[in-house]
């Protein structure tokens, strides 16, 4: 299990690095999917199979799909012309090196072992519908708000990028009428 953990960790890190360095946008997103898969494996090795599944289903499945859809919608060219000169990486690299050093120093290398045994879906569910039920309700409200908000923000009177009327929220009545007549 520990070996699996380290392998998955390495995969995750490498994939993430590739995400941020790819110029091709779709490639970057796909590498992100790989990274998320690797993190799901990490979850499994930590004895959290429920969130491992969730990670795959929601994160890698839904969220990344939304990304891909948006990319297709925006007609972003495959090769993003927005290159950043190599010298622009220096500052951020220095900054994050400092940050990473601090974090690692803060975390310490004490080699505490984790408790053996997994925390299965049952326990998680009990916690969700027990003490955290309020949080669940709030999360669903958040999602509702995001849904409505996204629909309104993305909708526009006219817009060259939206060629497929099916995806715009603008003419459900027209569609319905058209569908009714035809």
């Amino acid at each position: 299990m520990t070996t699996l953990f380290y392998i998955a960790a390495v995969v995750a890190v490498l994939a993430t690095i590739l995400v941020i360095t790819r110029s091709n946008l779709v490639h970057a997103l796909l590498y992100l999917v790989v990274s998320l898969f690797a993190v799901a494996v990490v979850f499994y090795t930590l004895g959290a199979p429920f969130v491992a599944a969730l990670e795959v289903i929601v994160y890698a499945g839904a969220i990344m799909m939304v990304f891909v859809f948006a990319v297709m919608l925006l007609n972003v060219s495959a090769d993003s012309p927005l290159r950043v000169p190599p010298s622009a990486w220096i500052g951020p690299l220095v900054l994050v090196a400092v940050l990473l050093a601090e974090l690692i120093y803060g975390i310490g290398l004490s080699n505490h072992a984790l408790q053996a045994g997994e925390v299965g879906p049952q326990q998680v569910s009990e916690a969700l519908f027990g003490p955290y039920v309020l949080g669940v309700e709030l999360a669903s409200m958040l999602l509702l708000a995001a849904l409505i908000g996204a629909r309104h923000i993305a909708a526009q009177p006219e817009g060259p990028a939206l060629e497929d009327p099916q995806l715009s929220g603008e003419e459900p009545d027209a569609r319905a009428d058209e569908g009714g007549e035809a």
Binding site: P92, L95, L99, E102, G106
Partner: peptide, 17 residues
């Protein structure tokens, strides 16, 4: 964001050190 990151590094440093 970079400036915020610098601030973050400073704060973390305070906490950690």
């Amino acid at each position: 964001i970079g400036v915020a990151g610098v601030g973050l590094a400073v704060i973390v440093a305070f906490v950690v050190l």
